[in-house]
Each structure stands twice: as structure tokens, then as C-alpha cells.
Amino acid sequence: MKSAQATVSKVLNYSCVDGPGNRLVVFLQGCNFNCRSCHNPHTIGLCNHCGDCVPACPHKALMLIDGKVDFVPHNCDQCDACLKACSINANPMVQIMSVESVLARLLEHHLMLDGITLSGGEATLQADFIVALFTAIKADARLRHLSCFIDSNGQLGRAAWQRLLPITDGVLLDIKAIDTQLHQALTGRPNQRVMQSLSTLHQARRLHELRYLVIPGFTDQPSEVQALAELVLSLDANIPVRLNAFQHHGVIGPAREWPKARQHDIQVIVQQLQQAGVREIITPAVYV
């Protein structure tokens, strides 16, 4: 049987911002949201092999072979010129990775890791791969100590979560907005499924933290923050809420004109959440 494969945007051997401890992070390509504030928009689309990026590459790392864009990692200087040339927010540098190749990478570095996080894009769009990978990790005595996490936008349906949760140790759930109209405006989708995911993950004790992106003028409004607090309290006041500060790096389009979230903006929200009774709030270590 051919093993499961994933379309991967990037792999990091080290991350201290994608779950507990040091984690290997696999960013899976493709997303079902289209967030205006996205910090990694080139992970949204899937390559249609139009070839626009090939002449844009100054290092001859991209070629068009038989109508397909071919990537030569050895030549790549990581200048990201191809990403700027892409009109559909895709990434010609994606690689196809098998479960075995991710396992090999984990085996190489496992002494220095607490776990693995599948992020994106939206990782759960490649749920078959996640199931195969996490099952294999838990079956390997050398890797069993690694915790398996998913960073998700919460659009996945309840039934699909039931497939993932038995082999998943924790989920970092992004919630873009509590008001569904605001959610629609920011992401292109309503948030009912996200709310459902939140409840599913909480009941299954797999919700590691709730992540909330503070965008001044949008998600920092008192009514919205109050709704966030009430949502948390309706489940458990101890759910960790991580506040991320909107910034401009990677952002494209009109959102670049939106103001960044400063330390002061975050502190105002921390106060409001604390007063409402939210107990665990994590704030950024660095503002850019």
C-alpha cells in the first residue's frame, strides 16, 4: 500500500511558538479560509502550474517541465521572489512528503523535541495524512514520547474530528472573531463550525489553547472581547487564551494599511478579559 503523503509548504526543526516545548512544525499547504490578515498568505492556495513564478526566480530554482512547475531546492536562496509573482497565493516551493520522510526527520531530532505540530495553511484539510502520521508516531517506541498537536482554524466538521482526536494530544484552535458577521468579513466564512469545533475539542479534553488575533479596529472592540470572555467562561475559565498581535510581516493587500497591535492594545484586552474572569492569558513575548 502506498503510504499517505502531504503537500508541505515548509518544515521547521525548531519552534517555541507552536505548542508546549520545542516542536518540529510541518506547515501543510492549502487553506479553506481566506483571511485578509493572513501572515502567511502563500500557504493558502495550491499551485496550478501556470509558470508565472519561473522567470521571477533569480536563482534558477524553478523550471517548467512538461507543463509542471519543478522546484530545485539546492538552487533556492529563499528570497521568496516566486511568492510575490504568484497570483493565487500558492507556493511553488511546496514539497510532497511521505509519512516515512517526516518520521525520519523526527528520528533525527527527537532528543531535542517535545513534540510535533501540524500547522498550515489549514492542516486538517489533509486529515488522512495526519491520521497516518500520528498513528505511526505513537506506534514507534522511539517517538512515542513526542506529543502530537494540530494548529487549526476550526472549520473541520465534528465527524472528522472524531477520527483525529484519538491520536491527537492537543489542538491549538484559532478563533478569528466571535461575532459571525465579523468572522465572515475577516475570513470569508461564518464561524458556526469553529464554535462547534471549540465545543468538540473542549469536551474531548484536547483544547490546548484558544488563539485570538488582536486586530485594532476589528477584534479589539469591547463587545467582541466581552463575547470572547463569555465564550471561554461558558466552557471553562481556565482555558488558556493566547493573544497574538496583528503585525504587517507577510501580510498582503489592504490589510497592510490596518494598524498593528501594540503592547498597549494587548494590555487593554488582557485587563478586560481578566475582569470578566478569564484566568489564563498568554501575551506576546515580542512586538514587531
Binding site: 517555541c16 511558538v17 516545548g21 520545542n22 523535541l113 498568554i282 506576546p284
Partner: peptide, 11 residues
Amino acid sequence: TIKNNPQALFT
């Protein structure tokens, strides 16, 4: 950023 995640440094 590791200041928010000392476990990462320990590991």
C-alpha cells in the same frame, strides 16, 4: 519568543 516557553530551552 522562547521567554514564553522555557520548556523548549530545557528540551
